[in-house]
Design a protein around this nucleic acid. Sequence first.
RNA 1: GGGCGGUUAGCUCAGCUGGUAGAGUAUCGGUCUUACACACCGACUGUCAGGGGUUCGAGUCCCUUACCGCCCACCA
Length: 881
Amino acid sequence: MLSKAYEPQEVEKRWRRHWEEEKTFTPDMSAPGEPYSIVIPPPNVTGILHIGHALNQTLQDILCRHARQKGKKVLWIPGTDHAGIATQNVVERALAKEGKRRADLGREAFIERVWEWKKKYGGQILGQIKALGASVDWTREAFTMDDNLARAVRKVFVQLYEEGLIYKGKYIVNWCPRCHTALADDEVDHVDSQGMLWHIRYDFADGSGSVTIATTRPETMLGDTAVCVHPDDERYAGLVGKKLILPIAEREIPLIADRYVDMEFGTGCLKVTPCHDPNDWKLGHAHGLEFIQVIDDNGNMCNEEASGRFTGMSREECRKSIVEELRANGHLVKEEPLSHSVGCCYRCKTVIEPYVSTQWFVAASKMAPAARAAVPDKIRIYPDSWTKTYYNWLDNIRDWCISRQLWWGHRIPAWTCPDCGELIVSESDPDRCPKCGCTRLEQDPDVLDTWFSSALWPFSTMGWPDKQEDLRTFYPTSVLVTAFDILFFWVARMVMMGQHFMGEVPFREVYIHALVRDAQGRKMSKSLGNGIDPQDMIEKYGADSLRFTLAAFAAMGRDIRMSEERIEGYRHFINKVWNASRFALMNLPEDRAPEVVDLGTVKGLHNKWILSRLEEVKEEEDQALEGYRFNDAAQCVYKFLWNEFCDWYLELIKADMREEGEAKKEAQFVLYTVLKEILLLLHPMIPFVTAEVWDSLPGCEGTDIATQPYPEIRPQCRKEKDADEMSFVQEVISAIRTIRAELDIKPSYRLSVVLRPASEEQAALLEANRGFLELARLEKVSIDAGAHAPKASASNVVRGCEVIVLLTGAVDFQAEVARLTKEIGKVEKDLATLGAKLANPGFASRAPAELVESEKTRHADLEDKKAKMLALQKRFMEAMG
RNA sequence: GGGCGGUUAGCUCAGCUGGUAGAGUAUCGGUCUUACACACCGACUGUCAGGGGUUCGAGUCCCUUACCGCCCACCA
């Protein structure tokens, strides 16, 4: 027997172990069934599972478990990402506590140290995936630094190099002076900040006047090699080509013209520092300017010749000194505050320095068109609104800087010969220079951007390039489930690589889910400390509660505001599932499944009704999941279980269960069937509690719900007429309950009721099912259209049937008058809106005939109800005198 | 400067192809009715942001205004 309240901890632990030990989620390659596959977006090894991961994984798990139920051969591959910068930073911080820096260890020892760290902590995040109940195949767990993934990386790199799609070159890149590495464009966060715009006067060398430039970065002026204006700017007409004296440096630089300059901004006069600004870099090349570097890789002033006395200062110190000096010597014309955005490192928030260096690039601009064309024909994006964003990014893509000056990552498979300078790019480590035979080859010190290996994830995790079996069966994957924040970092790049190397897109569909925010709508982050730790929630409320909450809130294209209260609320639901099951167990045979009954020919109206509704719910859930409407799927089963199965059906069969007989046998089998199927419908969302209950059902002991098929469809159980008749009985019961509650009659007091049916049919229906009326706790029921209505009574009308409750003794008569008046008021309000609608000539002529007809019927029914209630009220008032 | 999303009950949010506004939570009243107080029965609350349009009919489609939020962009 199950315990009284559901205690998730022990149950979850057991099932987790069971699924892992039994390898339940390792697909049988020889089994039939359409393949269905997903690769998990690999969380960073440094990470701790946050609520966003929990959502991401819950949704994937729902899809996978559902697909399994539908008979598909399902593979869900788990894994983690080595997360170059992030992980290196974490380990460097740990070293710093020991007073060491990575240089103190040297490259090899440092990498060894990172691996140790990974072994120790990298498993943490996997444990959290397990805790959530994700039905991944642990035998295929992958890590982006695994040997076979490293081979994939090398092969891809070499091939792209040979095809001219990877190249090496000297460019201005985003440089983080703290992480000491280049960053890709999209690894730079733009943060709004309040800065200064300094106006500085540059005099002409011939003493014929001056121009004034405006800049936010005066420290870079030491590297200025020109000043630029717009060719059409009349203010500077005739001046282009003249020489200016660069203040402080006292160097001559030319005044040039280029259409790039915005005449509206500042003074319309731009200082050009080709080595320290990406735009100026372009101008420098276009105009053949000199390139003078004045800031080094640490963000300090360098180049004694150019920087002079400022050499060695940090960029910030230098800025201050230069401004002071300009102010002192009168070249500073104006200072004004300016809000602008500043590029920062997405990992450490340090201000990015545009920096000229030699880097490796992927010619993304050449690969983008194919990736663009894949959507929407080969890849469908849900919700569709992201398609535009995807296009927009690909249309404006620039080549992707993939080299990082880090130690942790896939080292670039390129070597240079110290003797002849030959560049060798090769899958295997070369032992000598093919050109001069030198054996002292030096490997490029850089590693690849983390996202380079991530881009190969859908096929590298399936064994490419070595093994083919998984690829043949499971590539392309069925769907990619991810949050929008990595649409660019990851999704678009996977498409490019998949197309290029597999000749096929990596996934058929992309489902973009919401971002989880806190109760105030802010992005959850460690720095804000507003995160909800899924681990805590699982311990407190159980994984099922967390999962169901996430599913219920996962409406498409919306952010989710998460709070603990909501998870607590859904824990009630899990408990409800548990207790409904306990009730069922108490009413079913203990050691065997109940006797089978033909479900198409059950007699009880309640049985016909619940079976009919069940059919509808099955279809609803299936369609909701088909369209990634997780919230609808969760909601429809939730309501069915709670508001129909528990609130009505279980109450209705209590009478059947009291004595042995046909009614009990029928109810037992229907109860058994409906409960089992509800469990199946809920299982993808709340796997643990459903597994536990299933295992304890008679006839199911020792079986695993995770391997059971989706409930069969039973068209013979669809009985809308019966279902509607049952609703009528329910409405009558509710009407009596409402009267009882509003007149403050004790629940324990048994009422007598007179029902005056509106038709022969109604009369027969009520007569046949009068036992159900017991749910309203009654003493005596008379069903008679001609019955005399007692004077001291309260009343209501349900589908034309008058419900008259006898009031004897201590009842507040005023209360009944008030209640009736209110009730009539409601009817009148409905009549008014409906009447206006019907009175509209356009409605009758243009609306569908069916609708007009049903509205007319409704109107007539309301009129009837109103008339009957007025009559009852009148009689009641007469009784009061 | 482009693009996207939001504005519905006190709070948090659902409302698919236009056809009587919904759930949870909160509040109020009543119940230990033999699965569940993590429960049961009942009640209350809405100019669906403002304005205009299309339509017989709009929370739902179109335009517009306001406020909030996000993304992208080489804003010196």
